[in-house]
Nucleic acid binder design. Structure first.
Lengths: 218, 218
DNA sequence: ACAAATATTTAGATTTGTCTAAATATTATT
DNA sequence: AATAATATTTAGACAAATCTAAATATTTGT
């Protein structure tokens, strides 16, 4: 597969939300920041190669073979993201662009060994699951911290309230996007929580808990 | 720079042995495994871009700017090779192809952090020097083990005698290409040596010493 | 159901990097 | 120094991936 073909495969995969959903030419064009006519050309080629199913005017979906390629790209992308954050001190929001390049490197041994080097991580720095070599992975969902059962751990992926005071609070308490948070205990009386974050346990009010999104594995 | 342009720059650099030597169209074509006419086209373009000096029928050399790009590619290539060997258990002879791909990844932060992650290595697994960010590096030369002064350390890069008995000897004594060897002591009487390899010191005869090539920093 | 709006495809052009074959320049030989 | 051998360039073609503009199909609104 060429670089460009791989990018189209990933776009179709993501637009189809990981299912073998049919997506429109225009949707792919928008995602790829290209023109619909270019998409038509490319999906014809992908179809000829057995990677996609294309029906003129009806849209395009990935074949099983195409899905496998997409999953392998997602796996590579997310493993590299973990590498960049864990080993090279990249932050949460700096990894995407570089991972977009690294995901195209072709070497099975490289990815197997990288996986091992990183300790076989299950999720990337954004909390998204990393497919196994065979293409299997766990689904994840986004929930407010106060909605997850005690004992669950997840990755902090967003805030509901993005006002300066709240963001300042998070900063002061060293809570950042990408951090792994374990919901340790809940106080029924006032709905406050004990959470473990980076080896230390802190106490947060219910109001804080209802404004923090976690990504958790179901 | 595109992938292809970068490959040509590296080829011109290597054929010119790192100096701003003028190299012939045919030489570049052979190195790149392409046709001379393709080289002509490309060096014209590189010339237009200020990367190379091209005089029809006279050959091509890199400009200072082109040399900078070449050194940055060499730096990236060799750092990735160290990474593959040190962190991902690749062996000496498996790294080249993957590093050829990785060297094209564009991210200054990535390379700076990789350098740091690896402990700022000075040479790659083949004993070749890694240029600094500014493009400076130490020259290295290949010498037979018996020709280097006591106290020198270098990387084992080849054998003069490649007969099965000799290779078997190396194997038995756990001496492999890519290993760092310190010449610890020399016995004047019979020209034998004590060498340190991977934390253990062993004794080798003069005959062995005259058949092992080391790459050392001058 | 029909016209208007939107989506998609086709046709033809463009850029990049490559190739082959022919033309031209350089170098080597006698 | 003239010719033969070799090296290099030019001209023209091709494939991949893209684009614009025009043509065609589908969907939507009344």
């Amino acid at each position: 597969m060429t670089l460009s073909e791989e990018d189209y495969i990933k776009a179709i995969y993501h637009l189809g939300k990981g299912e073998n959903t049919t997506v429109s030419t225009n949707a792919v064009a928008e995602q790829m920041e290209t023109k619909p006519s270019s998409v038509t050309d490319m999906v014809k080629k992908l179809s000829d190669k057995g990677v996609a199913n294309y029906k003129p005017y009806k849209g395009v979906s990935l074949t099983e073979y195409g899905k496998k390629i997409a999953l392998s790209l997602v796996r590579k992308h997310r493993l590299w993201e973990v590498f960049l954050v864990e080993k090279l001190n990249f932050s949460w929001d700096e990894v995407h662009e570089v991972a977009e390049q690294l995901e195209h490197i072709k070497s099975e041994k490289l990815i197997d060994q990288l996986d091992k080097h990183l300790g076989f991580p299950q999720v990337d720095p954004h909390g998204d699951p990393i497919p196994s070599k065979k293409g299997e992975f766990k689904k994840t969902i986004k929930k407010l911290l106060n909605e997850v059962p005690v004992g669950t751990s997840g990755i902090c992926v967003g805030v509901k309230d993005s006002s300066p005071p709240f963001l300042k609070f998070l900063d002061k308490n060293k809570i950042a996007l990408g951090d792994t948070i374990l919901v340790h205990d809940k106080e029924e009386f006032d709905g406050s929580f004990d959470i473990k974050i980076k080896e230390s346990t802190i106490h947060i009010s219910n109001q804080i808990a209802t404004n923090l999104y976690l990504k958790i594995t179901e």
